[in-house]
Design a protein around this nucleic acid. Sequence first.
DNA 1: GTCTATATAAGGATAGAC
DNA 2: GTCTATCCTTATATAGAC
Lengths: 205, 205
Amino acid sequence: MTTTAPQTRIQKRNREVILNAALEVFSTHGFRGATLDQIAAAAGLSKPNLLYYFSSKDAIHIALLEGLMETWLAPLKEIDPKGEPVEELVAYVLHKLQMARDFPRESRLFANEIVQGAPRIAPQIDGPLKALVDEKAAEITQWVDEGRLAPVDPHHLIFSIWATTQHYADFDVQVRGILRPNGTEHFDTASDFLAAFYRRALTPA
Amino acid sequence: MTTTAPQTRIQKRNREVILNAALEVFSTHGFRGATLDQIAAAAGLSKPNLLYYFSSKDAIHIALLEGLMETWLAPLKEIDPKGEPVEELVAYVLHKLQMARDFPRESRLFANEIVQGAPRIAPQIDGPLKALVDEKAAEITQWVDEGRLAPVDPHHLIFSIWATTQHYADFDVQVRGILRPNGTEHFDTASDFLAAFYRRALTPA
DNA sequence: GTCTATATAAGGATAGAC
DNA sequence: GTCTATCCTTATATAGAC
């Protein structure tokens, strides 16, 4: 948050209620598709009351995105350069898949934003995100050079992990539509598939 | 198209101009985010003239999606069950990546639609798309059973191919932001990465 | 802090001249 | 076929009572 922290307990609680409602609506309909009426209804508050806590629709959206970036990148930070390469990366894949399952709204919020050109978070991408990815890419390259990992382009590897895991949140309707009627446990089968797939592709010859 | 084909040459041409402009705008801003003003400006026509050719904003969007689904699925149909399994699938990956490079707007149009719950194309997903995927999944399973392909869940394999290739169109800003300043040829490096990656993961032991 | 009422603007769609 | 002018709904945001 860049703004001052809320003071009273009720303020804090209402801000949270609003952000949760907004996450639901923005992630489903995109920024433009979402309306304050929908968010107000989901939050159980009146529309003007929303704007008592946040100065505008934009401000709500920005607050959501800012609060999210850090959480979203945490798993990448946890890749341990001192660990066993293949296991570290497979663990990262499974961690990201778990997040797609547990926080699909957050994933879709990002997807909406980035597909539409990231008008509100381009600076976050070009700054902290790029820095972290470059750092981790260097560590992966180190592993490859040591022969402990199959030769891969580290940036594209990271992209592939993001793509394959977030797919299950972002394209959920499609996945369910195709896997129906056996799609109830598709995160389990995806977990098995991805773990085996990345293990095969990354284990050095 | 479900509607009657346009008669005169000028009608046909204007419909195409409008659809092209609409693809640009819808793919960038989503359905709700796009305005008829923007589409009209991009098409070089007046707003009422747009509505002379298409009965509503919705009608334009639907026409786009309908015309697209077939093109988008064509590469999947071309996987030859009589071919060499690993090579057929690697070729499919590269074909899909090429489409992401050559038709990013089409990819983003789909992404926008599906991320937001596919309100307008759910029937297409549950019908023809599922049918085709199930058919191809059976062929892949056959290959696995014959020991000509590493053991993989065919549905999740297809999802992973869609995810990793379309990622370069849908998340283009993110990819460019991270690969900057060396991102001009990133489709080439992605091509190398994905070909090697899928080959390693799919070749039987 | 929360509401009702309302100002104001944007956007989809139509009327009707040319 | 194409335009200008306009209708009308929706949606963001504010005023002001309580």
